[in-house]
Design a protein around this nucleic acid. Structure first.
Lengths: 188, 188, 188, 188
DNA sequence: CATGAATGAGGGTTCATTCAT
DNA sequence: AATGAATGAACCCTCATTCAT
C-alpha cells in the first residue's frame, strides 16, 4: 500500500494481483468485495481506480494479454535451429500450462460476460500469437501456426476436464513428430 | 389420479431445452428464474422436477453426454476403410461444431462451479469418447485418440475466441494429414 | 389408509397424527408438504379434509384441548381425600410433562401465528382447566386453581429452558407443602 | 474516512429495536425484510451488521440476557428486610411483566429454531437468575429460588394465554403467602 | 484519496394453495 | 376421493455500486 505512488502504476499493481483471482474463481463468482479483501483495500478504492467490475476485467484482459505475449517472445528467441525452436515452443507450453489455462478461462469469461457487441480485445492477441508462432517456426503457412494454437488450447482444456489424465509429454511428442515430418517434406 | 403427465419424460424435455441456455450463459450467469422464463414454466415447477440448480445441471451434463456419444457412434459406424473413417470423423466434427462448443462450455462451467469434491461426471464421458475414437480409427495407441479429442476441444474454443477466423477446413486438412502420416508409420 | 371410512372419522385420525409434528416443529417450521409426507397422503388430500393450514391447526388445537381435559378428569376421579387428590394431581403433572409442553408450544403458536383478532380458542380450555382443578381441590378460591395452572406452565417451560435441571420432584414437594398448609389454615 | 458511525454502537442500537419484533412475531415468522422495514433500513444494511438472521438472533439473545440480569440486580439491591425484599421482588416482576414475556418467548424460540447442538446460551442466564433470587431472599435452598423462577415463567405465559384474566395481584399475593410460610418454617 | 455504510435488485429456494385428472 | 403438477409470492442472502465523511 504505497502512499505517494503514481496513480497508473498503482492501478497496474492492483490489476496484477487480480489475475489469479479471476482465473481461479471466474468472472461471475468473483465479487468486488472479494477482490477488495484479497487486495487489502476497500471497495471504494477499487472504484476509485476502476469504473466498474467490467472495466477492471477489461483492463485485466489487456494486461495479461500483453504480459504473456512478451513472456513468450523472450522465452523463445534463443532457439536457433528449427528443431530447437519446436522443442522450445513445446517446453514453453508445458511450463506455462496453468497460465494458458487461466488465459483461456479469462478469455472465455470475457466474451461470455462482457457487453455482447464483439470488441476486438483478445482477438488481436490471438493474431499476434499466431504470427509469433509462425515467425518461430519460419513457416509461411498460417494454418500451421493456428494448428499449434489450437493444440495449445485443446491441451490445457482437455487436461482440465479429464483431471490431468492426458499427458503433456505424450501429446507434445505427437505434435513434435508431426512438425518434424512436415519439415522433412518441405511443407513447413 | 394425477395430471396426465409422465414425470420423467417431461423432466427430460425440460432438460433438453436447458442445453442451449447453459451453453450460452454459463452456469454462474444463468439463474433459475431465467431458466423458468425461457422454458415458460414457474420456478416452482423447476424445483418440482429438479431438487436444485446443481441437480439440474448434473442431469443436463449426463443427458447431453449420452446423447452426443450416441450420435457420434451412429454417425460414424457406416465408414469402412480407414480413410473413410477419418473423413467421417472430421465431417462429424465439422457438422457438430456448435454442439461441441456447448459441451466444452458446459463442462468447464461444471468443474468451476460445482462443489469441489471431484465427481466423475463428464470425466467418464471423456474416457468413453476416447475409447470410441480409438475404436473408430482402429488404433491401440490411446494418445492418438486423445490427440483427436484435444484438437476437437482446441478447435471449437479457438474458433469461439477468434470469431471464426480459424477455418474448419484448413485445420481438418492438417488433422487428416497428421492421421495419414501416423497410418503410414504403422502406428494407426 | 382405510378406504370406505367416515369422512369425519378419517379427518380426526389425520389430525391426531399431526399433534406431535406441530409440537416438535412449530407452526411456522412445519409445511403442508411435510405434514402430507408424514401422514403418507398427498397435499391434495390434506386440502380435501382441511381448508387451509390454519384450519388444520385450529382443529388440532381444539382436539388436543378436549382430549387432554378428558384425560385429566378420568385420571383424577379416583382420588378421594384431599391429600390423595393433591398427590394425584401432581403425579398427573409429572407423568404428562411432555404433553403439557406440547400444549403450551401449540397454544403459543396459536396466538402468535393465527389471525390476530383474539379468538377464544384455548382460552376457554384454560378456564375449563381452572374449573377442573378447583373442583378437584374442593376450593372456592379461583386464584388457587390458577396458581396450580401457573405452576404447571412455568414448570414445563422452566425445564424446557434449563434442560431439565429443575427437578419435578422438588418443585412438586414445594407446592404440595404449600397446599397442605393452606388446607390446615382452612383457606383452601 | 468512513461515514461517522460507530459500527458496534449502531449494531447494538439495531439489536435493541429487534427485541420486541422477535418477541411478538417469533423467530420463524419474522423475516429479515420485516425487520429491515421495521428498523427503517435496507436488508443489505442488516447484513452489513449481522452475518445472518441466526447471528442477529444469537446476538439479540445475548444482549437481552445481560441487560435483564443487570436491571434485576439494580432494582432489587435497595430492599433490606426480608419482607421488603419479597415485596420488591414481586413488584419488580409485576413491573417487568412484558419484558419477562418477551424473554420467555425469545428463549423458547432460541431452543426451537437454533442449531440443535445445545449451546449454553440462556441456560447460564437462568442459573444466574436463580442465584440472584437466592441471594435476595437469603435462602440456601435452591428449590425456593427455582420456584420463584417457575412462577415467573408460568405467570407471564398464563396471562398471555388467557388474555390477562389471571390477575397479577392475586398470584403475587399467593407467592408472597408461600414465601412467608417458608420463612415461618425457617427454610428461608 | 480512501473508507465502509447503505442500497435494492436479484440470486437460489420453499411454501401454501389450486386444479386437471 | 385422491393425486401431484403448477404457481408465484416470499424466504434468506449476495452483489455491484454510490456517496457522505
Amino acid at each position: 500500500m504505497p502512499k505517494v505512488i503514481d496513480h497508473d502504476e498503482y492501478r497496474e499493481e492492483l490489476l496484477s494481483q487480480c489475475l489469479e483471482l479471476f482465473a481461479r474463481e471466474g468472472y461471475g463468482a468473483l465479487s468486488m468485495r472479494k477482490i477488495a479483501d484479497a487486495l487489502d483495500v476497500s471497495t471504494g478504492t477499487l472504484y476509485h481506480y476502476f469504473s466498474s467490475k467490467e472495466d477492471l476485467f477489461h483492463q485485466l484482459v489487456e494486461v495479461i494479454t500483453c504480459q504473456d505475449l512478451f513472456d513468450a517472445e523472450t522465452a523463445l528467441k534463443d532457439a536457433e535451429t528449427l528443431d530447437a525452436r519446436i522443442d522450445a515452443l513445446l517446453r514453453f507450453i508445458e511450463e506455462r500450462e496453468s497460465s494458458f489455462l487461466n488465459q483461456v478461462f479469462i478469455w472465455m469469461d470475457y466474451y461470455r460476460n462482457i457487453t455482447p457487441e464483439a470488441e476486438p480485445g483478445p482477438r488481436e492477441a490471438l493474431i499476434e500469437y499466431e504470427e509469433g508462432i509462425a515467425r518461430l517456426l519460419g513457416t509461411e503457412d498460417p494454418e500451421i501456426a493456428r494448428f499449434i494454437l489450437v493444440m495449445m488450447n485443446g491441451l490445457v482444456i482437455q487436461r482440465y476436464l479429464d483431471g490431468g489424465r492426458t499427458s503433456l509429454e505424450g501429446q507434445s511428442a505427437l505434435i513434435r513428430d508431426f512438425l518434424i515430418q512436415r519439415k522433412a517434406k518441405g511443407s513447413l
